[in-house]
Structure formats: structure tokens, C-alpha cells
């Protein structure tokens, strides 16, 4: 028997949630378009170039950004590379298991990755060290630490906050014992992000569209759709998942709601500074 089945939602709880939604409220007393409390802080990742720890309600995601040096793609010899990975830490939920990333972890990383990629928020030319030869590869590694629903919005918020805090080392070539190294000069520079694309996810439960589903809502939802929006309110990526379907009206209404909610989330990122003093 699948371990996760015991964590699936009982018919009792399902009926209760549906009943509440009919009344226009939710298990935790929120409105249908209301987020849980959002908190972004510096977290415990002291050895990364940039990081953030984000809580949405009881959901926690930590993101750390590391760099490596690599060769650029031939079609963009003067541009660095950004890559996302997500790890669902098994202590985050009894539903997560050890082992290689499952498809939901891969999906999470891909959705966050597309949100970053298509909003052109990072000038990839700033990640170039030696054109055509050496560029920075940025690893945006997403660690799902406590799973209580809406990992996608939390992860995208954490990723963008972590990127905002990145300080890359300035490098210079040094020859030691006839071997050439790239040595950090001790100076660093930020990525100068001026856009904060955020993701807003809607879950559909029996014709109700709710934002920021908690775990129990996420588990009974028939479908979900995530919109990533930039600072101009433009949609930069969409991801639909779940076995249910949406009508055009539902999707447009959700997109409008997402546009209304995005500035609130973007403000949270704007306010974030990575302060590691006292850690």
C-alpha cells in the first residue's frame, strides 16, 4: 500500500471544505483570494552566493544560489547560464520519499525556471567571465523544507528573493606553480535585478477557484493553474496541472485576480535584504 494514501484526505474533510467554500470561507478562515502570512528571511544558508528562506503559512522553502565556471553554449558565447533544481526533502512531509527527484519536484523546478527565464530579469551578459570560453553557471537550488501546500508560489518567491541577494565574486587570472586559476579578487557585484516575477497559483475545488491552497485544499483540488507575472502585470509563464479542466471564463478571471495579487508579492521581494549578521 502506498504510504501517501493514509495522508490523503477523508471524505469527511472534503465535504467540510466544500461546505465552507459554498459559504465563501475556508478552513483557516481566509477568503477565497487571500494568501496566508508571507515571510521572507535570510535563512541558514551561509555558504551560498545568495539565498532566501520563504514561509507562506506553514510551508517553508529554502533557496540557495551557488556558482560554478563552465563553457557557454555555442549560440550565446557571452552569456552565462542559470539552472534550477528542486529537492523535496523527505523531512518536509510524510508524502515525500528519499530518492531521485520525482516528477513533481522536476515540475516545480521547471516552473520556477521558466518564470525567471522569460522575464529577462537577469542580464546574462553579466555572467560572462571570458567570452566564448568561461561563464558563470548559476545554480538556483530549491529545498522544500516543510510541505503545507502551495510549493510553487513559495518556491518562486524564494528563488527570486535569493537571486536578488546574489553577490558574485569578481575574478582575475592568477598563475600559481605554472597553473592558471581564476581567483576571486575579494570584490563582489550583484545581479541588478529590476523585475520581480512572482507566481500565483489557483486551485480549483468543485468550481471554486482559490488562491494559495493549503495542504488539505491542494490534495482535494481537481486542478490548479499557476500564473507568473512580471512588474508590468504581464503574464510570463503559465502552468496547468491536475486531472480537472478549466473554462475560458475561469482562466481569464483567475488571470485578472493574479494581476491584482502580484504587486503584494512583489513588494515582499522588494523589501527583502539578505542580512546574515547574527546568524
Amino acid at each position: 500500500m502506498d504510504l501517501s494514501i493514509s495522508k490523503k484526505i477523508s471524505s469527511l474533510e472534503r465535504d467540510y471544505i466544500l461546505d465552507l467554500l459554498e459559504k465563501g470561507t475556508r478552513v483557516d478562515g481566509r477568503g477565497l483570494l487571500e494568501y496566508r502570512e508571507i515571510k521572507i528571511d535570510a535563512g541558514h544558508i551561509l555558504k551560498s552566493e545568495g539565498s532566501a528562506r520563504v514561509f507562506i503559512g506553514d510551508t517553508e522553502i529554502d533557496v540557495g544560489v551557488k556558482y560554478d565556471l563552465g563553457t557557454p553554449y555555442p549560440d550565446s558565447p557571452d552569456e552565462g547560464v542559470i539552472t534550477c533544481m528542486a529537492e523535496f526533502v523527505p523531512s518536509a512531509s510524510p508524502m515525500f520519499e528519499s530518492g531521485p527527484p520525482r516528477e513533481d519536484a522536476i515540475e516545480l523546478a521547471r516552473v520556477v525556471d521558466r518564470g525567471i527565464r522569460h522575464s529577462n530579469l537577469i542580464d546574462k551578459k553579466k555572467l560572462c567571465v571570458v567570452p566564448g570560453k568561461e561563464v558563470f553557471i548559476l545554480f538556483v537550488d530549491i529545498y522544500y523544507m516543510d510541505h503545507n501546500g502551495n510549493g510553487i508560489d513559495t518556491a518562486s518567491l524564494a528563488a527570486i528573493s535569493a537571486l536578488k541577494s546574489v553577490q558574485l565574486p569578481k575574478l582575475e587570472q592568477k598563475v600559481i606553480n605554472e597553473q592558471t586559476f581564476q581567483a576571486p579578487t575579494g570584490e563582489t557585484y550583484p545581479l541588478d535585478i529590476d523585475d520581480y516575477p512572482v507566481t500565483i497559483t489557483f486551485s480549483k475545488i468543485d468550481n471554486h477557484m482559490i488562491v494559495d491552497p493549503n495542504l488539505i485544499e491542494e490534495l482535494i483540488a481537481e486542478a490548479r493553474v499557476s500564473f507568473c507575472l512580471n512588474k508590468n502585470g504581464q503574464i510570463t509563464s503559465i502552468q496547468k496541472n491536475g486531472k480537472g479542466t478549466f473554462s475560458a471564463e475561469e482562466l481569464v478571471k483567475a488571470a485578472k485576480n493574479a494581476r491584482d495579487l502580484a504587486p503584494m508579492l512583489q513588494q515582499k521581494v522588494k523589501e527583502y535584504t539578505r542580512d546574515l549578521t547574527g546568524m
Partner: peptide
């Protein structure tokens, strides 16, 4: 974690 040490 991948970011727990100096080099990823």
C-alpha cells in the same frame, strides 16, 4: 544540501 559547502 548542494549549497552547504564552498563548491556546489
Amino acid at each position: 544540501a548542494t549549497f552547504s559547502v564552498g563548491e556546489r
